[in-house]
Design a protein around this nucleic acid. Sequence first.
DNA 1: TAAAATATATTGTCTATACTTATGCATATC
DNA 2: GATATGCATAAGTATAGACAATATATTTTA
Lengths: 265, 265
Amino acid sequence: MVESELTAVSIRPHNVYTLAETLPHRKFTLSGSHPLYMQVKTAVLDRIRSGDWPPGGRLPSETQLAQDFGCSRLTVHRAIRELAHDGVVERRRRAGTRVAQADGVALEIHIRRITQEISQRGFAYSYDLLNRTQKIAPAYIAKFFDIPPTQKMLHVQCRHRAGERVFQLEDRWINLDAIPQAMDQGFEHESPGLWMLDHVPFSRMNHDISACIATAATARHLQVETGTAVLQLKRQAEWNGRAITCATLFHPADLYSLHPESRSL
Amino acid sequence: MVESELTAVSIRPHNVYTLAETLPHRKFTLSGSHPLYMQVKTAVLDRIRSGDWPPGGRLPSETQLAQDFGCSRLTVHRAIRELAHDGVVERRRRAGTRVAQADGVALEIHIRRITQEISQRGFAYSYDLLNRTQKIAPAYIAKFFDIPPTQKMLHVQCRHRAGERVFQLEDRWINLDAIPQAMDQGFEHESPGLWMLDHVPFSRMNHDISACIATAATARHLQVETGTAVLQLKRQAEWNGRAITCATLFHPADLYSLHPESRSL
DNA sequence: TAAAATATATTGTCTATACTTATGCATATC
DNA sequence: GATATGCATAAGTATAGACAATATATTTTA
């Protein structure tokens, strides 16, 4: 019988994994520490990270691992399933589980509501409305919303401040056809972004994160010099396949940067 | 007995959920469509998104849901567990499951290896090395690596091109103490970033995404005008708590932006 | 009344068992 | 040799039953 290099490695006289030793006959009394599937997960992860199971290499089957670890297959399954979800391994029926090639990095950004974002930095939050008008949207906006270019939409411009500085300039279009309630909102004291977060459901959001330099108008609103660096976040929200709103959020680059976390573990 | 507003809502004469109707006596023959736990997941999600179960509101217990759906508790458990993982709901033992407040957005960015990133855009990838020297690192770098400021490190600057344009400028420091093999690499034909991705394991990465404007030197390397917008990605990698490498990656803003996906569903 | 003990409900984990589905591999057929 | 067929294997899904952990609710006690 031909075993893969990995399977061969994993077969050892008695208990391959420290795990099995900590669980005499199991019955998940455990050492009060982590749940079993977690232990399996980290045990497998350790093997992968140590280079013991190289990228592209095959892991033992769930059944085999269950034997080695001295636990049920479902427990192993859950551990490996989560590793697969995190992109650490790839699985295919019959073909087995292989260590994923590091084809890149998966990052996760948590963008909290801006009031929190600001107060967490130790600044006082304040808000001011620059502009709120119903008007015909420019062609590219109308096209995005799939709306006849004759129909009026709501356009709001406002600012979020951290202390004295402008933290974010919000430039938003709202589809009044989809969100007629927005008509009744003045947005004098709360930004349309925050209002929508609480009052409008959405099923999908598209984002685009990029850099730009402050044009004269943008610089004036942001209270920075023309030509300074700006982090720009475009955000589009849909509800049931229908475009609800799109916004461009401008941040002075010296005030704001994104700190994503690597997934996996 | 006092039922929560939600539990009350969920109790209806016969089968609350379409699911139960599609599964007469189940035995998971299913309509060939999605697995049961997925159906439960989307059914619950639909309720939440429809506003039927508002943020902060309590969901029926797993046992209750299992009855309503006509499936086992474990199936419901898996569905809800995944929703919790995605941040849609929050769970606590005994206290039950509640719909999470929309406190913000979770985004996921997949950064593939840069060769793919470029060829996927339909450009020819090419690479050139600008600089490769061993030298004393500036104080802030030495401090980050927790290394005496007298020790030499490897500093590499190189470029990734998409067609004629410079797509990314890579400016990297490597801890030779941790990765002595890097000494043998000339990096004439492969960037240190790509080489490390394939040959060096890492346990953790920190990122920082921000905007800047091109200084004279950066602009020359990027082949853009001084003062144009640049998307800047700082990346630090660790292995077992030890800093291995840190890099700053510069992208002309007109060539590159990030397109994260919203998690959940 | 306040604190402590107890009960209870709800999620979390685990096992054993079974069936389903995809697919690599070998064999048979054309 | 090319193609079709069947088999075996490994992951995927599902169930029932059990126990664990833990917060909340209730009752008892000081």
